[in-house]
Amino acid sequence: MTELAIIWSILAAQIMLGLAMAFALYRMVKGPRAQDRILGLDTLYINAMLMLLSFGIRTANSIYFESALIVALIGFVSSIAFGKFLMRGEVIE
């Protein structure tokens, strides 16, 4: 009974997170300007990380949590690099 409730609520959460990823992807593809695309990419990373966490709760596999950690860190570094690029036109100054 409890198992069924958790599985269904995690399924609902995953549908919501998938929808959120679709919205972020739309903003990333549509633009209209470069900073909007980067903001969309950053939100996409966060939502993907949350999706991995929900899979982790569902399966109790610690690989999911490690990959969520890595996605969070790589998303941060890439957003910073893109932001630097927008500001000056160069990544390393």
Partner: peptide
């Protein structure tokens, strides 16, 4: 917690849209 958290994330992305 899972439902509330994902609903908040969904609203955040909806705001982006």
């Amino acid at each position: 917690l899972v439902l509330l958290g994902s609903a908040i994330a969904l609203i955040g992305s909806l705001g982006l849209l």
